[in-house]
């Protein structure tokens, strides 16, 4: 009995360590500036929406929200569309060929972003594309395609090979097999891949920091504008932070089973 109690105490401490920082940010976003900086900290307070008002009054933040939304949805949809076609083709190949292509795709993900962001920035400044949405959509699609391929292959692998054989005997052309049989059968995996791409793009900072201009700033870049030289507006900052991460936490919980799989890219199977 004592052991059991000890276990639950341990569990509680673990959850506290994991969740407290998040809790503290969300709670602070509802505090007045005075409450936010009170020492000792204020645990009970009358909540205020003042910080959210500040954030929503900030035009930059609102347009960043729209930018993040458009860029992550479009680049992810593009990546999943391209990725699913390629993944279908690769999933049908003999192991040796497939392996070499998968290795190549994986190797694309090891290089630091710096390596392709600098030349992209250089070219973009020359053709004046720095302030264009399509530049970011293309950049993120380029980053997401290899990821989408590696992940989707694992979902297509779960579909029995006989389905393709059956469809071919039933008179389907290769594209019909893909469209009528494989795509519907892998629907769950495709949605999960799409969500993971959106999640990644939404959260991505480095590429956005370099390649976004004033009109294309995404949320993670825009939030740094609250870190001003005059000091940090913690109230507005925590409110903005809450707004940024909330949709992703909802999405993430929706595809929770796939996240670990997605982040290891099927490398678990070897």
């Amino acid at each position: 009995m004592a052991r059991r109690a000890l276990f639950y105490v341990g569990l509680l401490l673990l959850l506290l360590a994991v969740l407290f920082p998040l809790y503290w940010v969300v709670v602070t976003s509802f505090k007045t500036t005075r409450d936010a900086f009170a020492i000792p900290p204020v645990w009970l307070f009358s909540p205020t929406l003042e910080n959210y008002r500040t954030v929503f009054a900030n035009r930059g933040f609102l347009s960043a929200f729209a930018n993040s939304f458009i860029i992550s949805i479009l680049s992810s949809a593009l990546a999943v569309a391209i990725g699913s076609i390629a993944a279908y083709g690769l999933a049908q190949q003999p192991a040796a060929l497939r392996r070499s292509k998968e290795k190549f795709i994986l190797s694309l993900r090891i290089a630091p972003a710096l390596l392709f962001v600098i030349p992209m920035y250089y070219l973009a400044t020359r053709i004046g594309a720095l302030n264009q949405h399509w530049l970011l959509i293309a950049a993120y699609a380029f980053v997401n395609v290899p990821f989408a391929i590696s992940l989707l292959i694992t979902f297509f692998d779960d579909i029995p090979k006989e389905l393709r054989d059956a469809a071919r005997v039933d008179g389907a052309r290769e594209f019909s097999v893909f469209w009528h049989v494989y795509l519907p059968a892998a629907r769950g995996g495709i949605v999960a891949t799409l969500i993971l791409c959106v999640l990644f793009t939404w959260n991505e900072f480095f590429v956005a920091l370099v390649l976004t201009g004033r009109n294309t700033q995404t949320l993670p870049v825009s939030i740094t504008s609250f870190l001003t030289f005059q000091g940090i507006q913690w109230g507005a900052l925590t409110a903005a932070a809450t707004l940024i991460m909330l949709p992703m936490i909802v999405l993430g919980v929706l595809v929770q089973g796939q996240i670990v799989r997605g982040m290891t890219l099927g490398s678990v199977k070897g």
């Binding site: 969740l19 940010v25 993670p220 939030i223 925590t238 993430g252 919980v253």
Partner: peptide, 20 residues
């Protein structure tokens, strides 16, 4: 599910949180 939260949190927000 709760353990998932830090992983999917926007890294920039994680940085801000800890800075705070």
């Amino acid at each position: 599910t709760l353990l998932l939260v830090p992983i999917i949190m926007t890294p920039v927000v994680v940085g801000l949180t800890w800075r705070f």
